[in-house]
Each structure stands twice: as structure tokens, then as C-alpha cells.
Amino acid sequence: MVEFWDHNGFGFSNVNAKQQLLSWLNDSIFLQPKDVILKAMTIACANNKRRLSYVVGILKNWKNESLLPIEEIDSYHENQKPVPKHSQSTESFPTGRVIPSGFELDLTAGEAC
């Protein structure tokens, strides 16, 4: 777990954060704490949030949801629907100005010959 922390950009020299993370191993209600913590760290990496507070937030959410074995956590995440991003309206709008029918462009108009 500490190796994952060191090799994935969480802060090689952040000893205090590593100690706090390890405390989740000893004082955890999770059934497979090491696997659960690694899963939370993997999610943090995927979201580019390599901070202890983010990992702990994930763990606290799972604890509050009573997702204790890793299988329940995996099932929970598989059933989550992705949040749809705001999409462009499918309505089409003309670009530029509306040109009246019958208009002819004469580039030489107004020039003296």
C-alpha cells in the first residue's frame, strides 16, 4: 500500500499522510482494509486527486454507505450511472447573417473603370 502511494504521485516524502493511511488498516471496519484502501487510492489516481484527504473522503463515504467488503464497493461503483455532461443543444441555428433570396454579390460594384 505504501509502495502504491510512493509510485503513484501521492507524495514520496509525506510520512504523516502515510501514517494516517496506515491507521485505516488497524482501525478499520472494512472487511478487507488493504484492498479497500488500494481501491480508494486507485480511484483517486483515476480522478487525478492524489491527496490523503481525497482518499479518506472516499473511505468515509464507503463507511457511511456501509459498503464494508470490497465486493459491495465494486458492485456499488458498477451500478453508478455516469453523470451526463452538459451537451450542446441539438437545435441548429444559422451561422452568420441571413442573406435575402435573389441577392447577388457584385465585387466590382461602385468601382470606376
Rank of each mutant, 00 (worst) to 15 (best):
M1H: 08
V2E: 06
V2N: 05
E3V: 11
W5G: 01
W5S: 01
N8G: 00
G9F: 00
N14T: 04
V15Q: 11
V15S: 13
N16C: 05
A17R: 06
W24N: 02
W24C: 03
N26H: 11
D27I: 03
D27G: 07
S28E: 05
S28V: 10
L31P: 03
P33N: 05
P33Y: 12
P33Q: 05
D35M: 05
V36G: 03
I37F: 02
K39V: 01
A40S: 08
A40R: 00
M41L: 13
M41Y: 07
T42D: 00
T42H: 06
A44V: 00
C45N: 02
C45Y: 05
C45M: 09
A46H: 10
A46V: 06
A46F: 04
N47V: 02
N47C: 08
N48D: 04
K49M: 03
R50N: 01
S53N: 12
V55C: 00
V56N: 06
G57S: 12
L59Y: 03
L59R: 03
L59W: 01
K60P: 04
K63Y: 03
S66R: 14
L67C: 08
L67E: 05
P69K: 04
E71Q: 15
E72P: 01
E72V: 11
I73K: 02
H77T: 08
N79F: 10
N79A: 12
Q80D: 03
K81S: 15
K81Y: 13
P82N: 11
V83I: 15
V83Q: 15
P84Y: 07
H86Q: 10
H86S: 12
S87G: 04
Q88F: 13
S89R: 09
S89Q: 08
E91L: 15
E91K: 15
S92I: 15
S92W: 15
F93D: 05
T95D: 13
R97D: 06
V98D: 06
I99M: 08
P100I: 04
P100V: 06
S101N: 08
G102F: 07
G102L: 08
F103Y: 14
D106W: 05
T108H: 07
A109D: 12
G110V: 09
G110N: 14
G110F: 13
A112F: 10
C113K: 09
